[in-house]
Amino acid sequence: MQQPINAPTLYINDLNVWFGKNHVLKDLTFDVFPRQVTSFIGPSKCGKTALVRCLNRLNDLKSDFRYTGNVQFNGKDLYSSKVNVTDISPKIGMVFHKPIPFRRSIYENVAYPARLRGIKQSSELDTIVEECLIEAQLWDEVCHDLDASPDILTIGQQQQLCIARALAGNPEVLIFDEPCEQLDAMETPKLEVTVQNLKSRYSLIFVTNKRRQAARVSDVAGFLYNGELIEFGHTEQIFTNPKNKLTEDYVTGRLG
C-alpha cells in the first residue's frame, strides 16, 4: 500500500463550499491518486456527499452553491470557464447511494453514455455494453436479458448496472457515494469485490459511513467531521494509529 509516484488525478487545495449561508466544507486539501481507492468516512451530514459532488461538478445544479479554492483534474482547473461540463462529467463518473436505472432496457442504460458521445454504430455499442457489463461483473447475470427492463434486477444488480453505465462514460475517476446503503448483506461483498477489480484502471473514491467497509476497501482514507478534513492518510494508519483524537474516537466507535 505505498503511494505511487505518479501524478494525482485530482488535486484539491483549500476547498471551501457554501450552500447559501451554510458553510459545508472548510479548507479541504488532499490528492486522489490513480490505482487507489480513496475513501471518505464520517458521521451523517458531515459533508461527504457535498465533497464528492464538487469533484464532478454536480453541485453546479444547486443555485445557492458557492465555492473557493482549487480543484484540479489531471492538472487542469476543473472549474475553469474553458471546461465544458458536459465533456468533463462522464470522465468523473458517479454511482449514487441508491441505484438509478433509467426507464429503458438494460442494454440502453449502459449504451446511454456512449450514445451521448455520439456513437451510433450498433457493433461498437454492443462491444461497449458487453465490456462495461463484464467489468461491472454483471454480464453473466444479464447477458440473456439485455432487452429487459432493469426492474427485473435486484437492487444490488441495479447498482452493478449503474456502475457499468458509469464505466461506459469512459471515466478516469469513479466516485461511489455510499453505494451499499440500499444493498443487503449478500450483495455488499460483491460490490466491494467489483470495486477492488476496478482499482487497476481507475482512480476510485468511496464514500461510506460504515467504518469497517472503508477499512476493507480503501488504500487511503479521509475522515470528515463537520465539514473539516480532520485526518487524511493511509487507511491502515487511520484505523490503527490515528493521529487525531477525533479520528480515534470515530474509528473506535465512540463518536457518531
Binding site: N56, S89, P90, L116
Partner: peptide, 11 residues
C-alpha cells in the same frame, strides 16, 4: 436523482 444521474453521465 434521475436528472442528476443523467447530468453526471454528460447529458
Amino acid at each position: 436523482s434521475v436528472r442528476e444521474a443523467a447530468y453526471a453521465l454528460g447529458a
